[in-house]
Design a protein around this nucleic acid. Structure first.
Lengths: 330, 330
DNA sequence: GGGTGTTGCCAAAACGTTTTCTCAAACGCC
DNA sequence: GGCGTTTGAGAAAACGTTTTGGCAACACCC
């Protein structure tokens, strides 16, 4: 009467035990049809709704998978990570929903304990860092994990990972730039230590070593705006004739810096970048992009995790990266 | 040793009581600095992680807000609702995360009990139906609700609602079409009973009554593809000279039907539609759209709900709808 | 009429925390 | 030395389910 009806109230109302009510409602035990009908009627009448938290505690499952967002305190959250997360989680969410799972996006900046406060059955970790705290946490809590990007800590070798052929595609792009005349192809990148940044840098340098392209890397300095780094890169004595940006932020910065320096694109400078989608965003110059297909990756990750939770072995995870050639590279 | 460490293990390890350990970890009771340090050390050593479900049960809060997705079993899920939900939840999620809340998207098709199984502190209901089951459920569970679209059931008058000026903007568009020569402006709509469909239909008919435009409404029949309805509308003896589509699906259907019937746009037929975003999607003809700003609405809804959960009164909720005129209306 | 099941129900033990209430000891004050 | 207050800690009661194990009662079969 006072507060919401609990299972106890239904039991009292019907004169049955809590056990029998639970069985009748969940269909798990052995209950006569007559009794079940009685319970259902009483539950309906009382407006009884089982408390999901209590049920979760007792059964050990809540039916929710989580995506921690770790870059909230990063300088680049708004420009870089937010769009990627938005696309990734949108894809993951829709797939999860279609497969009868709920997906929760949890703020998980290092300080905030949010990720530890939210009930979860499984977790998708985006771009794990070396010695990733969240990853370690999940293993401790015995929560299944799927990673988007390679888990760098060797101890986590058992975690399913979405591999990406972004590096291959990057090589393809660089090859193409070189084949069509560029001789000083540079990389504009960031200083964060996520696997995405690290892998890209490594792939670029390896390609340089293999082809003889001079490795020209400009990295954002702390507390610096991307455009400043872009301008510094384009003002070097040995100015590059083509630049690949780590993501949309750096791509935009390159466009802005080139405009300011009076460099025509693609005449004086060829520009490309990585991007979470292959959609044409209509920059001032149509931009050549390596599309990471964030939404699709999210969907794949969610599907894999749901498989794991259901006891199935996860299929080999792979999302084809797309190369879209547009006018900015001639 | 066998399974994960619980608070009990920490208590045993330190020789303290469970109460003191809990106090030391949460900082709530009175614990000496020395004892706290001891507890922290032991917890760290054991790799203790409090169980969020148990904590939630005891404290009554889990820190999660939910968005139920109710149209999963609708014919129109893939074409219509999915994009709207994807944009809406992406907006809501990012805002929630930035304000230290987790947002979970829950499949809630009438049959599935998912929404009842997920622990939630608050809920955002998108486009409530008359006599909305989810809305009723939340009120019974005493869960705060924010609605995107008007709650039609008078009993739910207390629920904060995101008002929309979509109807005003629709009138503006219709006025403009009429002012520039259209005399037979039709509406291509659906048969679902959500508030969005109902409100639009009502606004259109009211406008017709006020201006003398003949009300020409074509609604999708059950198990019919939108294009068939569009073709039927455009094949009428009293063919409209302008049509507004309820959403992107109907807009596309209109384009396809017009093409098939050899009607030039905007020469023989002017076309507009509602849309979740004002972004140019590059249809065959640049389309005049009423943009509902789904992502922004999601963000506003999340912000309002978080305010309510924090005890603040929700501000008046309003998302300006945008009218984007493009070539399809001449 | 003694086995052998099966059916319908219940008591009680988890589940792992938070929180309330109580208590003893230490402390400060006149 | 008596008295009130503060401090540090603990026992036990929630929180609201699910699940385990058991117990009558009834049915069936030779």
């Amino acid at each position: 009467m006072s507060s919401r009806a609990g299972i106890r109230d239904v039991a009292t109302a019907t004169g049955l035990s809590i056990t029998t009510v639970s069985h009748a409602l969940s269909g798990k035990g052995r209950v006569s049809a007559k009794t079940r009908a009685m319970v259902l009627a009483a539950a309906e009448e009382l407006g009884y709704r089982p408390d999901p938290i209590a049920a979760g505690l007792a059964s050990g499952r809540v039916g929710v998978i989580g995506v921690p967002v770790v870059h909230l305190d990063s300088r680049h959250w708004g420009h870089t990570y937010r769009p990627y997360y938005a696309a990734f989680t949108a894809g993951a969410t829709m797939l999860a929903v279609e497969r009868e799972h709920a997906l929760v996006v949890v703020p998980a900046a290092p300080g905030s304990g949010m990720i530890r406060r939210v009930p979860l059955d499984g977790v998708i970790v985006v771009d794990p860092e070396p010695n990733d705290a969240i990853l370690a946490d999940c293993l401790r809590r015995a929560i299944p994990v799927v990673a988007d990007g390679a888990p760098l800590d060797p101890g986590h070798a058992t975690v399913p990972v979405i591999h990406s052929d972004a590096d291959d595609v990057l090589r393809t792009l660089l090859d193409r730039l070189r084949a069509t005349g560029s001789r000083r192809i540079a990389l504009l990148t960031g200083t964060e230590a996520d696997s995405y940044t690290i892998d890209t840098d490594r792939a670029y340098r390896a390609w340089c070593a293999a082809t003889g392209n001079p490795p020209i890397v400009e990295a954002l300095q702390p507390d610096e705006v991307p455009e400043v780094a872009a301008k510094r890169l384009l003002s070097r004595a040995d100015r590059p004739d083509a630049v690949h940006g780590l993501n949309e932020t750096y791509g935009e910065a390159l466009l802005a810096a080139a405009r300011r320096l009076g460099l025509s694109i693609p005449g004086a400078l060829r520009v490309s970048m990585m991007c979470e989608t292959s959609e044409d965003k209509r920059w001032e110059v149509p931009l050549t992009v390596i599309s990471l297909e964030a939404a699709e990756r999210g969907a794949i990750a969610a599907a894999a995790l749901i498989d794991v939770l259901a006891g199935k072995a996860a299929d080999r995870l792979h999302v084809p990266t797309r190369l879209v050639i547009r006018a900015s590279t001639g």
